[in-house]
């Protein structure tokens, strides 16, 4: 399958996390909106590697859910065959600290703050598979050099809604409410 990345989606923030977090250098809106939308509609799978998508999810976490220490990471994929499209063989993740812990059973870190979470931005129109989920965990574990027990999928749709779901590795006991 031919790897295709239209010029207008060339990521301009392949540098350090501090740089990509700056709001000044992002050409986010304006005339690109309609082109984005047409492109997204035609290529739902491709948007999982769209860096704009990561920025939108990151901004949603920042402004709506009051997360802090947000940064964007380009993670090399160990099993690229699992993905139909990849942006330079990488997945784009968001890392951040929630306003409060997400599970009542979670430990706080040594500073009494909730632990960081990895978020994988994806579009709701795309499809997924076991193979791909395994590849996400393996790639992230290689990148962080630590076991990863869970990843949040931040699912973005064209009406600007973003929903977040935990994907836990293996069998876990369901969440206790309250």
């Amino acid at each position: 399958m031919a790897h295709h990345q239209p010029p207008l989606h060339q990521p301009s923030f392949r540098t350090s996390p501090t740089h990509v977090g700056s709001s000044k250098s992002r050409p986010m809106y304006g005339s690109r909106g309609l082109a984005d939308r047409a492109y997204n509609a035609a290529n739902p799978q491709n948007n999982l590697i769209n860096s704009d998508l990561a920025h939108r999810v990151k901004r949603n976490l920042d402004l709506q859910h009051l997360w802090t220490e947000l940064s964007i990471h380009r993670v090399p994929v160990l099993a690229p065959d699992a993905f139909e499209f990849l942006d330079g063989g990488e997945l784009v993740f968001v890392l951040g600290r929630p306003a409060d812990r997400l599970y009542a059973t979670d430990e706080y870190d040594e500073d009494g703050l909730p632990v960081h979470e990895w978020i994988l931005p994806v579009r709701t129109e795309s499809t997924w598979s076991i193979q791909r989920t395994v590849a996400v965990f393996e790639s992230l574990e290689a990148y962080t050099r630590a076991p990863v027990k869970r990843v949040l999928m931040g699912m973005y749709t064209d009406d600007s809604t973003v929903v977040y779901y935990f994907v836990h590795k293996g069998l876990i006991k369901p969440r206790k409410h309250g």
Partner: peptide
């Protein structure tokens, strides 16, 4: 290649969004 012969995942709503 992989150690385990069955891969399983559990999905839950994150509680926000």
């Amino acid at each position: 290649a992989r150690r385990e012969d069955y891969a399983s995942f559990c999905v839950e709503w994150a509680g926000f969004g």
